[in-house]
């Protein structure tokens, strides 16, 4: 799998590695997918990178590759900003080859990372018709998570027709941030758009939402989909090629 802009892949890994330290990559002719849960089974990430999004892609037989995302992140940190990236696994090999090429083709770096045997648990995620779908700048969402974490461990997300309100309370007191829907969309990237069938009020652990925000550099916009008594879905699109979707179980009444 070759990417002209290897930085896209580095951003994917950076977006996942805090939530899941290691994961099994499923490779097929259609592309690369991954599903993994955090160790406490509260959050899940689902990644799709379709084959047509790569400069070139070939997969002769389906493979499951156990990879340490922490190690991969370290390797990818050595990559130059404009380097291209090729990922390769040879038949019967126990390692993955990560090759980087500088833009003017005067530097070539190759790394081999050992593959791991991982027990992976797969969950069936039903197609959900969410009550609310919010789109907002991903930088804004990151900031809200950071700001709400000052006040408490949990954030209550409430939606109305007018907007969406994030609030948190704790020993210090309480705080809230309300975003109103953008009425005059000039720049789509900066818009706050709320599609609502029913109002929702759900509470989530801020710590996990903040971890999801590590994927924010992938996309200028984030999508939050919410329904009562349903895990939140937080989506970052990977330009033209797929998405990273995070799911987070809500906090529920005792």
């Amino acid at each position: 799998a070759r990417l002209l802009h290897g930085s896209i892949f580095a951003k994917v890994i950076e977006g996942l590695r805090e939530l899941v330290n290691e994961a099994t990559w499923e490779c097929s002719g259609n592309g690369i997918t991954l599903q993994a849960m955090d160790s406490s089974h509260v959050a899940l990430v689902s990644l799709v990178m379709r084959s047509e999004g790569f400069e070139s892609y070939r997969c002769d037989r389906n493979m499951s590759l156990g990879i340490s995302l922490v190690s991969m992140s370290k390797v990818l940190k050595t990559m130059g900003k404009d380097d291209s990236l090729t990922i390769r696994v040879n038949d019967d090999s126990d390692s993955i080859i990560i090759a980087m090429e500088s833009q003017n083709q005067d530097k070539f770096a190759d790394y081999e990372l050992r593959l791991m045997d991982l027990d992976s648990e797969h969950l069936g995620i039903p197609d959900t018709d969410y009550s609310c779908a919010i789109k907002m700048p991903s930088s804004e969402f990151s900031r809200i998570c950071r700001d709400m974490s000052i006040m408490g461990d949990s954030v209550l997300i409430c939606t109305t027709k007018e907007g969406v309100k994030f609030s948190a309370k704790g020993d210090l007191g309480q705080g809230s941030i309300r975003l109103v829907q953008t009425t005059n969309i000039e720049k789509e990237e900066e818009a706050v758009i709320i599609e609502m069938k029913e109002a929702v009020a759900l509470t989530f652990a801020v710590r996990y939402l903040s971890m999801f925000c590590k994927a924010a550099p992938l996309s200028p916009q984030v999508g939050l989909s919410l329904s009562e008594d349903t895990p939140l879905m937080c989506e970052f699109k990977i330009a033209e090629m797929g998405h990273v979707r995070f799911y987070l179980a809500p906090k529920i009444e005792d």
Binding site: S40, H41, H122, L123, T203, P231, Y247, A249
Partner: peptide, 14 residues
């Protein structure tokens, strides 16, 4: 008080 649920409460094992 609120309890943190796990994803298995919502999604099936596949």
């Amino acid at each position: 008080s609120l309890l943190q649920s796990t994803l298995q409460c919502f999604f099936n094992q596949s």
